[in-house]
Design a protein around this nucleic acid. Structure first.
Lengths: 119, 119
DNA sequence: ACATTATTTCGATAATCGTTGAAATATGGA
DNA sequence: TCCATATTTCAACGATTATCGAAATAATGT
Protein backbone atom coordinates (compact mmCIF):
# COMPACT_ATOMS: atom_id res chain seq x y z
CA UNK A 1 0.00 0.00 0.00
CA UNK A 2 1.20 3.47 -0.91
CA UNK A 3 1.47 6.22 1.61
CA UNK A 4 -1.31 8.15 -0.12
CA UNK A 5 -3.69 5.24 0.23
CA UNK A 6 -2.71 4.79 3.84
CA UNK A 7 -3.48 8.43 4.59
CA UNK A 8 -6.83 8.08 2.85
CA UNK A 9 -7.71 4.97 4.81
CA UNK A 10 -6.58 6.50 8.08
CA UNK A 11 -8.64 9.60 7.42
CA UNK A 12 -11.65 7.47 6.60
CA UNK A 13 -11.39 5.70 9.94
CA UNK A 14 -10.51 8.81 11.90
CA UNK A 15 -14.05 9.83 12.66
CA UNK A 16 -16.32 8.58 15.37
CA UNK A 17 -19.38 7.69 13.36
CA UNK A 18 -17.40 6.38 10.45
CA UNK A 19 -15.32 4.12 12.64
CA UNK A 20 -18.56 2.80 14.08
CA UNK A 21 -19.88 2.17 10.60
CA UNK A 22 -16.77 0.33 9.59
CA UNK A 23 -16.73 -1.78 12.72
CA UNK A 24 -20.34 -2.68 12.11
CA UNK A 25 -19.51 -3.63 8.54
CA UNK A 26 -16.65 -5.78 9.72
CA UNK A 27 -18.96 -7.53 12.13
CA UNK A 28 -21.52 -7.97 9.39
CA UNK A 29 -18.95 -9.84 7.35
CA UNK A 30 -18.49 -10.07 3.60
CA UNK A 31 -22.22 -10.14 2.90
CA UNK A 32 -22.54 -6.64 4.27
CA UNK A 33 -25.51 -4.78 5.59
CA UNK A 34 -28.20 -2.50 4.23
CA UNK A 35 -27.80 1.22 4.67
CA UNK A 36 -31.06 1.28 6.57
CA UNK A 37 -29.95 -1.34 9.05
CA UNK A 38 -26.81 0.62 9.72
CA UNK A 39 -28.77 3.82 10.12
CA UNK A 40 -30.97 2.08 12.66
CA UNK A 41 -28.11 0.46 14.50
CA UNK A 42 -26.11 3.66 14.85
CA UNK A 43 -28.98 6.12 14.91
CA UNK A 44 -27.65 8.23 12.08
CA UNK A 45 -29.56 10.22 9.48
CA UNK A 46 -29.57 8.43 6.14
CA UNK A 47 -28.05 11.33 4.24
CA UNK A 48 -25.30 11.73 6.80
CA UNK A 49 -24.66 8.05 6.42
CA UNK A 50 -24.38 8.36 2.66
CA UNK A 51 -21.69 10.95 3.22
CA UNK A 52 -19.72 8.59 5.41
CA UNK A 53 -20.21 5.65 3.08
CA UNK A 54 -18.70 7.72 0.30
CA UNK A 55 -15.61 8.38 2.38
CA UNK A 56 -15.20 4.74 3.21
CA UNK A 57 -15.67 3.75 -0.41
CA UNK A 58 -13.23 6.30 -1.72
CA UNK A 59 -10.69 5.01 0.75
CA UNK A 60 -11.32 1.51 -0.53
CA UNK A 61 -12.65 0.36 2.81
CA UNK A 62 -16.17 -0.44 1.68
CA UNK A 63 -18.19 -1.50 -1.34
CA UNK A 64 -21.84 -1.10 -2.32
CA UNK A 65 -24.26 -3.16 -4.27
CA UNK A 66 -27.93 -2.71 -4.80
CA UNK A 67 -30.39 -5.35 -3.77
CA UNK A 68 -33.97 -4.42 -4.42
CA UNK A 69 -34.45 -0.97 -2.99
CA UNK A 70 -31.71 -1.43 -0.48
CA UNK A 71 -28.09 -0.54 -0.83
CA UNK A 72 -25.86 -3.09 0.79
CA UNK A 73 -22.53 -1.94 2.08
CA UNK A 74 -19.72 -4.31 2.93
CA UNK A 75 -16.28 -3.89 4.42
CA UNK A 76 -13.32 -4.30 2.11
CA UNK A 77 -11.11 -6.40 4.28
CA UNK A 78 -8.15 -6.42 1.96
CA UNK A 79 -7.71 -2.68 2.27
CA UNK A 80 -7.89 -2.88 6.02
CA UNK A 81 -5.25 -5.56 6.06
CA UNK A 82 -3.12 -3.57 3.68
CA UNK A 83 -3.39 -0.63 6.04
CA UNK A 84 -2.35 -2.76 8.99
CA UNK A 85 0.53 -4.01 6.92
CA UNK A 86 1.58 -0.50 6.07
CA UNK A 87 1.42 0.57 9.69
CA UNK A 88 3.35 -2.39 11.03
CA UNK A 89 5.95 -2.05 8.32
CA UNK A 90 6.38 1.53 9.33
CA UNK A 91 6.74 0.66 12.97
CA UNK A 92 8.75 -2.53 13.15
CA UNK A 93 9.82 -3.07 9.59
CA UNK A 94 11.44 0.23 8.90
CA UNK A 95 12.87 0.92 12.30
CA UNK A 96 14.83 -0.50 15.21
CA UNK A 97 11.70 -0.16 17.34
CA UNK A 98 11.52 0.73 20.98
CA UNK A 99 13.00 -1.65 23.52
CA UNK A 100 9.70 -2.08 25.35
CA UNK A 101 7.43 -2.12 22.37
CA UNK A 102 6.55 -5.52 21.11
CA UNK A 103 5.48 -3.95 17.83
CA UNK A 104 3.26 -6.82 16.90
CA UNK A 105 -0.45 -6.88 16.17
CA UNK A 106 -0.73 -6.78 19.92
CA UNK A 107 -2.92 -9.79 20.05
CA UNK A 108 -4.11 -9.68 23.57
CA UNK A 109 -5.52 -12.46 25.67
CA UNK A 110 -5.92 -14.93 22.78
CA UNK A 111 -3.55 -17.58 21.68
CA UNK A 112 -5.46 -18.59 18.57
CA UNK A 113 -7.39 -16.58 15.99
CA UNK A 114 -10.89 -15.92 17.13
CA UNK A 115 -12.42 -17.57 14.11
CA UNK A 116 -11.66 -21.08 15.25
CA UNK A 117 -12.59 -20.55 18.81
CA UNK A 118 -12.32 -24.20 19.67
CA UNK A 119 -9.54 -26.57 18.65
CA UNK B 1 -7.33 1.36 23.95
CA UNK B 2 -10.65 3.16 23.91
CA UNK B 3 -12.42 4.05 20.72
CA UNK B 4 -11.94 7.74 21.45
CA UNK B 5 -8.19 7.32 21.70
CA UNK B 6 -8.15 5.26 18.54
CA UNK B 7 -9.96 7.98 16.63
CA UNK B 8 -7.51 10.54 17.97
CA UNK B 9 -4.53 8.46 16.94
CA UNK B 10 -5.97 7.73 13.54
CA UNK B 11 -6.67 11.41 12.98
CA UNK B 12 -3.14 12.27 14.01
CA UNK B 13 -1.72 9.89 11.44
CA UNK B 14 -4.22 10.77 8.73
CA UNK B 15 -2.26 13.63 7.28
CA UNK B 16 0.59 13.54 4.83
CA UNK B 17 3.15 15.62 6.63
CA UNK B 18 2.23 14.29 10.02
CA UNK B 19 2.53 10.70 8.89
CA UNK B 20 5.96 11.56 7.52
CA UNK B 21 6.91 13.08 10.84
CA UNK B 22 5.78 10.05 12.75
CA UNK B 23 7.58 7.67 10.43
CA UNK B 24 10.72 9.68 10.84
CA UNK B 25 10.33 9.57 14.61
CA UNK B 26 9.85 5.84 14.47
CA UNK B 27 13.02 5.50 12.47
CA UNK B 28 14.84 7.76 14.88
CA UNK B 29 14.00 5.37 17.67
CA UNK B 30 13.36 6.05 21.34
CA UNK B 31 16.04 8.75 21.58
CA UNK B 32 14.06 10.89 19.19
CA UNK B 33 15.11 13.74 17.00
CA UNK B 34 15.34 17.50 17.28
CA UNK B 35 12.59 19.59 15.77
CA UNK B 36 15.14 21.26 13.57
CA UNK B 37 16.43 18.00 12.14
CA UNK B 38 12.88 17.00 11.31
CA UNK B 39 12.20 20.35 9.72
CA UNK B 40 15.29 19.91 7.59
CA UNK B 41 14.53 16.33 6.67
CA UNK B 42 10.96 17.01 5.63
CA UNK B 43 11.37 20.58 4.47
CA UNK B 44 8.65 21.97 6.67
CA UNK B 45 8.36 25.37 8.30
CA UNK B 46 9.18 25.19 12.00
CA UNK B 47 5.88 26.67 13.10
CA UNK B 48 3.93 24.30 10.88
CA UNK B 49 5.90 21.52 12.44
CA UNK B 50 5.02 22.66 15.93
CA UNK B 51 1.39 22.44 14.94
CA UNK B 52 1.81 18.84 13.83
CA UNK B 53 3.87 17.92 16.86
CA UNK B 54 1.04 19.13 19.03
CA UNK B 55 -1.40 16.87 17.25
CA UNK B 56 0.85 13.88 17.62
CA UNK B 57 1.43 14.63 21.27
CA UNK B 58 -2.23 15.09 22.03
CA UNK B 59 -2.88 11.75 20.40
CA UNK B 60 -0.21 10.23 22.60
CA UNK B 61 1.94 9.34 19.63
CA UNK B 62 4.90 11.53 20.52
CA UNK B 63 6.71 13.09 23.44
CA UNK B 64 8.97 16.11 23.81
CA UNK B 65 11.86 16.96 25.97
CA UNK B 66 14.19 19.90 25.89
CA UNK B 67 17.90 19.48 25.44
CA UNK B 68 19.77 22.72 25.33
CA UNK B 69 18.00 24.94 22.87
CA UNK B 70 16.59 22.01 20.96
CA UNK B 71 13.32 20.27 21.47
CA UNK B 72 13.61 16.57 20.98
CA UNK B 73 10.58 14.69 19.82
CA UNK B 74 10.25 10.96 20.08
CA UNK B 75 7.66 8.45 18.96
CA UNK B 76 5.50 6.88 21.62
CA UNK B 77 5.60 3.31 20.48
CA UNK B 78 3.17 2.01 23.05
CA UNK B 79 0.36 4.11 21.67
CA UNK B 80 1.08 2.97 18.16
CA UNK B 81 1.00 -0.63 19.28
CA UNK B 82 -2.20 -0.02 21.17
CA UNK B 83 -3.70 1.42 18.02
CA UNK B 84 -2.65 -1.61 16.01
CA UNK B 85 -4.15 -3.77 18.70
CA UNK B 86 -7.39 -1.88 18.56
CA UNK B 87 -7.56 -2.14 14.80
CA UNK B 88 -6.78 -5.82 14.65
CA UNK B 89 -9.23 -6.55 17.43
CA UNK B 90 -11.85 -4.75 15.45
CA UNK B 91 -11.02 -6.66 12.31
CA UNK B 92 -10.29 -10.21 13.33
CA UNK B 93 -11.20 -10.25 16.97
CA UNK B 94 -14.68 -8.89 16.79
CA UNK B 95 -15.73 -10.44 13.53
CA UNK B 96 -15.80 -13.58 11.42
CA UNK B 97 -13.52 -11.86 8.95
CA UNK B 98 -13.54 -12.21 5.21
CA UNK B 99 -12.64 -15.56 3.68
CA UNK B 100 -9.73 -14.09 1.75
CA UNK B 101 -8.44 -11.77 4.39
CA UNK B 102 -5.63 -13.17 6.41
CA UNK B 103 -6.27 -10.49 9.00
CA UNK B 104 -2.77 -10.63 10.30
CA UNK B 105 -0.12 -7.95 10.30
CA UNK B 106 -0.09 -8.66 6.59
CA UNK B 107 3.52 -9.52 6.48
CA UNK B 108 4.15 -9.55 2.80
CA UNK B 109 6.61 -11.51 0.73
CA UNK B 110 6.62 -14.49 3.06
CA UNK B 111 6.48 -17.94 1.60
CA UNK B 112 2.73 -18.37 1.78
CA UNK B 113 1.19 -16.40 -1.06
CA UNK B 114 -2.20 -14.79 -1.18
CA UNK B 115 -5.16 -16.93 -2.05
CA UNK B 116 -5.42 -15.90 -5.68
CA UNK B 117 -1.84 -16.96 -6.26
CA UNK B 118 -2.47 -20.50 -5.27
CA UNK B 119 -2.77 -23.22 -7.90
C1' DA C 1 -50.74 5.48 -12.32
C1' DC C 2 -50.09 6.17 -7.56
C1' DA C 3 -48.30 5.51 -3.04
C1' DT C 4 -44.52 3.62 -0.15
C1' DT C 5 -40.03 2.52 1.07
C1' DA C 6 -35.01 3.17 0.69
C1' DT C 7 -31.43 5.94 -0.37
C1' DT C 8 -29.07 9.77 -2.60
C1' DT C 9 -28.29 14.60 -4.07
C1' DC C 10 -28.14 19.38 -3.19
C1' DG C 11 -27.46 23.71 -0.63
C1' DA C 12 -26.41 25.66 3.54
C1' DT C 13 -23.97 25.96 7.92
C1' DA C 14 -20.70 26.06 11.79
C1' DA C 15 -16.54 23.95 13.05
C1' DT C 16 -12.08 22.33 12.34
C1' DC C 17 -7.73 21.96 9.54
C1' DG C 18 -3.18 23.04 7.57
C1' DT C 19 -0.36 26.71 6.32
C1' DT C 20 1.69 31.22 6.49
C1' DG C 21 4.08 35.54 8.32
C1' DA C 22 5.30 38.16 12.14
C1' DA C 23 6.41 38.43 16.75
C1' DA C 24 7.57 36.23 21.11
C1' DT C 25 10.18 33.07 24.13
C1' DA C 26 14.04 30.19 25.72
C1' DT C 27 18.85 28.77 25.70
C1' DG C 28 23.77 29.09 25.15
C1' DG C 29 27.88 31.58 23.72
C1' DA C 30 30.98 35.85 23.06
C1' DT D 1 25.02 42.09 28.45
C1' DC D 2 24.14 41.48 23.68
C1' DC D 3 23.62 38.28 19.93
C1' DA D 4 22.61 34.19 17.46
C1' DT D 5 20.08 29.87 17.43
C1' DA D 6 16.00 26.97 18.15
C1' DT D 7 11.40 26.71 18.70
C1' DT D 8 6.83 28.36 19.95
C1' DT D 9 2.82 31.50 19.98
C1' DC D 10 -0.47 34.28 17.71
C1' DA D 11 -3.66 36.00 14.22
C1' DA D 12 -5.21 35.31 9.81
C1' DC D 13 -6.55 32.81 5.69
C1' DG D 14 -8.77 29.57 2.42
C1' DA D 15 -9.95 24.70 2.37
C1' DT D 16 -12.17 20.82 4.12
C1' DT D 17 -15.41 18.45 7.30
C1' DA D 18 -19.64 16.71 9.43
C1' DT D 19 -24.26 17.60 9.79
C1' DC D 20 -28.87 19.14 8.61
C1' DG D 21 -33.36 19.93 5.90
C1' DA D 22 -35.54 19.66 1.70
C1' DA D 23 -35.99 17.77 -2.58
C1' DA D 24 -34.83 14.21 -5.97
C1' DT D 25 -34.20 9.43 -7.55
C1' DA D 26 -34.90 4.37 -7.62
C1' DA D 27 -37.40 0.12 -6.84
C1' DT D 28 -41.52 -2.25 -5.26
C1' DG D 29 -46.34 -3.09 -4.31
C1' DT D 30 -51.43 -1.93 -5.19
Amino acid sequence: MEKTDAVAALAALAQDNRLDVFRLLVQAGPDGMTAGAIADALDLAPNTLTFHFDRLRMAGLATVRREGRSMIYAAQFETMNALLGFLTENCCGGAPCAPDATCKPARKRTKVPAREDRP
